[in-house]
Design a protein around this nucleic acid. Sequence first.
DNA 1: GCTCCGATTATCT
DNA 2: GATAATCGGAGCG
Length: 203
Amino acid sequence: MRREVATPRELETFFARPAATVAPQLLGSTVGCNGVTVRLTEVEAYAGVDDPASHASRGPTPRAAVMFGPPGRVYVYFVYGAHWAVNLVCHPDGVAGAVLLRAGEIIAGEASARLRRGERPARVQLARGPGNLASALGVTGAMTGSTLWDGPLVWAPASRPGEHQVGPRVGVTGGADAPMRMWLPGEPSVSTYKRSKRARPTT
DNA sequence: GCTCCGATTATCT
DNA sequence: GATAATCGGAGCG
């Protein structure tokens, strides 16, 4: 009988690799929190100090410190005065990097998700976009630094690898050209946003 | 259908 | 004081 749940050590090893390597392997994996489970359909890799779009690019400020710590932790931040965004910390301890969870499909706990997202959104919209995904899962900044095995956020690997597509990043004002955004083709829960008009190439 | 714009606050300079 | 890894609604064609 194959073991179903990876050990903490296995999980930490899994995340102790470059964000760009881990990111595509997160597609199809699941994240659970507050009674809601989501299957990830879109993610985006953020490297460390050399990535102008990463919060780590300005060094280990208080906010970004978690990204410099051990892998397999959660990094949650607040943007645009309105939304939370969830990241999973990658790279070995001491090297910054993370993967932003951009979108997912609700596979369990839709009722719980609607307590926070409301009855209005269509099912595929409940966790479409980073802010909505965090809202559906009830993630808040207080969860920053917690591990993916002790919760409150719990992660489980994909049952099998899937095809994925790669494209430019969304919504960033620097390094937007980097093909660091990855998603599962044909998934209606993938965010449809165009690149920000304020975006500019890396140079 | 597509494009534009305001909301609202933690974080950094 | 300025900025931001967003969202949803308004306006236009």
